[in-house]
């Protein structure tokens, strides 16, 4: 055929896929290696500066039922995009506990402590009293499992 003859005469075009494949496989290796280093726990915000603590557990495997709250430098509770303190914070905890208790009751699991994991992101400049107060309030409403988000520091 004339077409084929002409193309042979001009030299066939061959895309060199080898370097492309090399790059792609290197990128895959890069991402595969990084996938185990863990990501940020949800609820990260620039306004909260986390403290550093030795030998904290890596992130991940936090379970499905989570409640993420933050404590700012002034000790105020930040949850669901609003800042609360005092009675409004107490009311918010009560509401969260009520919803979850109602869910457990539907499943026939009454008088059990709530399985929800409360993820607390507290600013390093907050006082221990404000964090302890928050934990105490949540504990009083039935929450028992807490995790404090920190930055991994050196071993003591």
């Amino acid at each position: 055929m004339a077409y084929r003859d002409r193309s042979r005469a001009e030299g066939s075009f061959q895309l060199n896929l080898t370097p492309l494949l090399d790059v792609v496989l290197q990128l895959i290796t890069f991402f595969m290696m990084l996938i185990h280093f863990g990501g940020k726990i949800e609820g990260a915000t620039a306004s909260i500066r986390l403290p550093m603590a030795p030998s904290a557990l890596p992130t991940g495997d936090l379970g499905l039922d989570r409640l993420v709250v933050s404590v700012d430098a002034k000790g105020r509770l930040i949850a669901e995009g609003s800042t609360m303190e005092g009675a409004s914070a107490d009311a918010w905890w009560s509401e969260q506990a009520r919803k979850r208790t109602a869910g457990l009751s539907t499943l026939g699991r009454k008088n059990e402590e709530l399985p929800t994991l409360v993820v607390v992101r507290a600013d390093k400049a907050a006082t221990f009293g404000s964090v302890r107060g928050l934990l105490s309030t949540a504990q009083g409403r039935g929450f028992a499992r807490f995790t404090l988000v920190v930055l991994r520091g050196r071993q003591p």
């Binding site: 904290a56 504990q139 028992a144 499992r145 995790t147 988000v149 920190v150 930055l151």
Partner: peptide, 11 residues
């Protein structure tokens, strides 16, 4: 990658 980690408390 982040250096975020967690401290678990069971209260």
């Amino acid at each position: 990658p982040t250096s975020e980690a967690r401290l678990d408390l069971y209260l």
